[in-house]
């Protein structure tokens, strides 16, 4: 088995101090391998968003270790952490956060340019990422000229652009209708099938159905998880 893209080892995150302290996550361990799409489900306040922030190096654990692409984050400086985020991690959030004054391709190319890529190379990779989400023809349109579903796919292309192999998605289909939402999941799934690793936080069981594994969180602790795929026979039985 290939080395994991993401590892959380006995991670605990406590917010605040003294009587007001809140334990958002406790002793959580999770590994996501290349090709794997892992969904995280749980009620509000169960620690899903904290988990995603730690996995994306946006926040640091109170205890335990986060490893992205073999790099132990505890040892890194702020600048090195920022480089890990830019090079290895793609974020897809509910609100798309596209810059209205930039075209789709410019929005997607932005993180590459911030990381020092030449504009022409960044543009080429951005168009490639847009092609992957089926929006090559819309590369030069501005966000306001796109539908909600198209804007979300641009946001995904921005999350996927370049060599990133860790994709973190927080309710990525937001307010999209179910057909459009499904198209978004198809893109994520295809990226994972091509070797990326993704962590998907969602309330929506239908979306979690796209995952290889589903982890259930409650009060900051993993209370359950589905295992690998079932045999086809068990389904044929269910159809009768």
């Amino acid at each position: 088995m290939s080395a994991p893209v993401l590892e959380l080892r006995h991670v605990t995150r406590i917010h605040g101090e003294g009587p007001t302290q809140v334990r958002a996550l406790y002793d959580l361990s999770l590994t996501v391998a290349p090709g794997e799409l892992v969904a995280v489900m749980g009620p509000s306040g169960s620690g899903k968003s904290t988990l995603l922030s730690l996995a994306g190096a946006l926040d640091a654990p109170t205890d335990g270790t986060v490893v992205i692409e073999g790099q132990v984050l505890d040892d890194l400086t702020h600048a090195q952490l920022a480089a890990v985020r830019r090079r290895h991690v793609g974020y897809v959030f509910q609100d798309f956060n596209l810059l209205p004054a930039l075209t789709a391709a410019e929005n997607v190319a932005l993180p590459l340019e911030l990381d020092g890529s030449r504009p022409r190379r960044a543009r080429r990779m951005a168009v490639e990422a847009l092609r992957e989400v089926g929006l090559q023809a819309e590369a030069d349109r501005f966000p306001e000229q796109l539908s909600g579903g198209q804007r979300q796919r641009v946001a995904i292309a921005r999350g996927l652009v370049g060599e990133r192999r860790l994709i973190l998605a927080d309710e990525p289909t937001g307010a999209l209708d179910s057909t459009t939402g499904e198209a978004v999941l198809q893109v994520l799934r295809a990226r994972c099938d091509a070797g990326a690793a993704a962590l998907l936080v969602t309330h929506d069981a239908r979306l979690a159905g796209w995952a290889d594994r589903v982890v259930f969180l409650k009060d900051g602790v993993v209370v359950d998880a589905t295992q690998g795929p079932l045999s086809a026979d068990s389904l044929l039985g269910a159809r009768v």
Binding site: A208, W210, A211, L230, S234, L235
Partner: peptide, 20 residues
Amino acid sequence: VQVQRRATMQHLQELTRLKR
């Protein structure tokens, strides 16, 4: 509830895979 949820979720994952 938890045991059932895991089983039903796993079933849903398989159905989604078949659909895909």
